[in-house]
Design a protein around this nucleic acid. Structure first.
Lengths: 137, 137
DNA sequence: CCCTTGCATAGACAACCGTCGATGACTGGA
DNA sequence: TCCAGTCATCGACGGTTGTCTATGCAAGGG
């Protein structure tokens, strides 16, 4: 019943064997898909931290709004009004997403532009799914 | 800039055009991957509810322990001791996962057997990822 | 018919979370 | 130099959550 955590095959998703600092919150969970072997406490805590950042309606909408915005980036003033929340609340949610490694923040002049971290959401999805997937494009 | 929500292509993941009652919490988010178009409030709330059920170390470990257990099912007494939590707490977490549509509960005699809902985690992963994936096996 | 076993529920409590208004910091013009 | 605009931080408040102990309920064996 021993499962091959050691003999891990990474499927090329971001954050796996890609250096020391990429997606730190996801690394422990890397190569240990949820349904293949029991998670140890550390990996569970790490993955839960990332999922907790995602598990909020406002933050999910922020992610999708940033992704759908022209240029793949948006500043706070673009997001406040369509989201229907105050500017401090939007800033707070964006900070949570940045801290979780899901968004990047780029301050240019007076504006702060937020953008998706490429592959971050895919890495979360890869841990959740049991299917061995092939990227089509 | 109009994105094709109407002209939706389902990739065959569970809960999509598969009847009225399968995975109710995921249906609103179906066919609207996070990064393709802005989520409306209802879809965001629905997806957040499912992710909130996942965003806890104990529940993540429970999911993986149930999946890795022999026969793909486990009763509460199998999970309490390795998890290091009391029996009421384990029962509470299992109820949260059942209510989220991620686990099934089958009472046989004195024991309650929990098992993964097939495709439930894959459906969550499919919403999170932007990649058009092909199942290999 | 009792007694043990497995599980769910109820109630309580501390910790955490989402939201707000108020305020401060910084940038770029007039 | 002052002002307007953008954003982050602070402090506060109500609601939610994870955990526990205590208790109830059902099944099965003496």
């Amino acid at each position: 019943m021993h499962r091959d955590i050691d003999n891990c095959q990474c499927h090329g998703h971001t954050g796996c064997m890609a250096g020391p600092k990429t997606l730190p919150l996801l690394d422990p969970a890397c190569c240990a898909p949820l349904v293949r072997a029991p998670l140890d406490a550390a990996a569970a805590t790490s993955l839960a931290r990332t999922l907790k950042a995602l598990a909020d309606p406002a933050r999910l909408r922020l992610l999708s709004m940033v992704a759908a915005h022209e240029g793949g980036e948006a500043c706070v003033c673009d997001l406040t009004e369509p989201l229907g929340l105050t500017q401090p609340t939007v800033s707070h949610h964006l900070k949570v997403l940045v801290d979780a490694g899901l968004l990047t923040r780029d301050k240019r002049g007076v504006w702060a532009y937020y953008a998706l971290v490429p592959g971050a959401l895919d890495a979360v999805a890869a841990v959740l799914t049991s299917q061995d997937v092939a990227v089509r494009i």
